[in-house]
């Protein structure tokens, strides 16, 4: 691959944690700030860019690959809010075929179509499905496709567990030109101990927080309108949260190779928090004291 056009950013995180919502709001915020943005959903569900394009139908890259016809960029992309170019990789129907290879093939198709040379984006965001289950899903952070990854996580153990797995993948591929970590996007933050848990996790793994995103009704409401918060509720506090996050991600050059926790370490760490949360919830101690 020649010189990269634009900054290429991969967003990972456990299934259902808020990757697509967050990525779409970041894209919308960057577009609003005047940048040219591409968002590529790397997920067979192909719902990554829904809120950017009002839930309109968009054929996926793999749909057109399946047909076997010559593919044109126009057939598989559509401009959404603020001119964000929306693309969905697509995949096989659940239970058959190999989705990992599908992601790989879709990315190849986009390169063959000279997407980046044609569109000349400032930012390209890859919204990658769930956990890094096999080599196929690690494609966006391998082979120099992106040089930075962010992981969306709540304070739930399983979300942090998935983040830790991504750290392992980054740790493995970074030495041979794979992406590094830009930071953790702490999503669905609520009052109480949530921030502290994620803070503690990033400290332990030598990473940092890219931004805290509150759990908010605005998000759910906008989603129901088929829009991002930036579009549906531009004046809300939540919109500003996404704008700040987008600014951070746009400017951040502090990329690290994380130190993932070992299995036993992670378990012990989680257990120690289990005890503390119990105390906090039962009013034995306040948050500050508990840490």
């Amino acid at each position: 691959m020649g010189k990269k056009i634009g900054k290429h950013i991969a967003i990972y995180g456990k299934g259902g944690i808020g990757k697509s919502t967050t990525t779409s709001n970041i894209s919308a915020a960057l577009a609003e700030a005047g940048y040219k943005v591409v968002q590529i959903g790397c997920d067979p569900k192909s719902d990554s860019t829904n809120t950017l394009r009002g839930n309109n139908y968009l054929p996926t890259v793999l749909d057109s690959l399946r047909e076997g016809n010559k593919i044109h960029l126009d057939d598989i992309s559509v401009k959404g809010f603020g001119g964000v170019l929306c693309i969905e990789s697509g995949g096989p129907v659940p239970g058959v075929g190999c989705a990992g290879r599908g992601i790989n093939a879709a990315v190849n198709v986009l390169q063959e179509l000279r997407l980046f040379e044609e569109f000349k984006p400032d930012y390209v965001l890859y919204d990658v499905l769930g956990d890094v289950v096999c080599g196929g899903f690690a494609v966006p952070i391998r082979d120099g496709i992106t040089d930075r990854a962010y992981v969306v996580s709540s304070s739930d153990f399983m979300a942090l567990y998935a983040a830790n797995n991504l750290f392992k993948a980054i740790n493995k591929y970074a030495p041979t030109g794979g992406a590094k970590l830009g930071g953790v996007i702490a999503n669905s933050m609520k009052p109480g101990y949530h921030r502290e848990i994620v803070d503690d996790f990033v400290t332990k793994t030598g990473t940092s927080i890219a931004g805290y995103v509150n759990r908010s009704l605005d998000v759910q409401q906008s989603e129901l309108y088929g829009k991002t918060v930036i579009e549906a509720k531009p004046d809300s506090a939540q919109a500003d949260i996404y704008r700040n996050l987008a600014k951070y991600i746009a400017e951040n050059e502090n990329l690290v190779v994380p130190n993932p926790l070992g299995a036993a370490e992670l378990r012990d760490w989680a257990r120690s928090w289990g005890d503390r949360i119990y105390d906090i919830e039962n009013g034995v101690v306040g948050v500050a004291e508990a840490i």
Partner: peptide, 10 residues
């Protein structure tokens, strides 16, 4: 071919 790998070859 590749598309059979992705979508299944059945």
């Amino acid at each position: 071919q590749e598309r059979h790998v992705i979508f299944g070859g059945a």
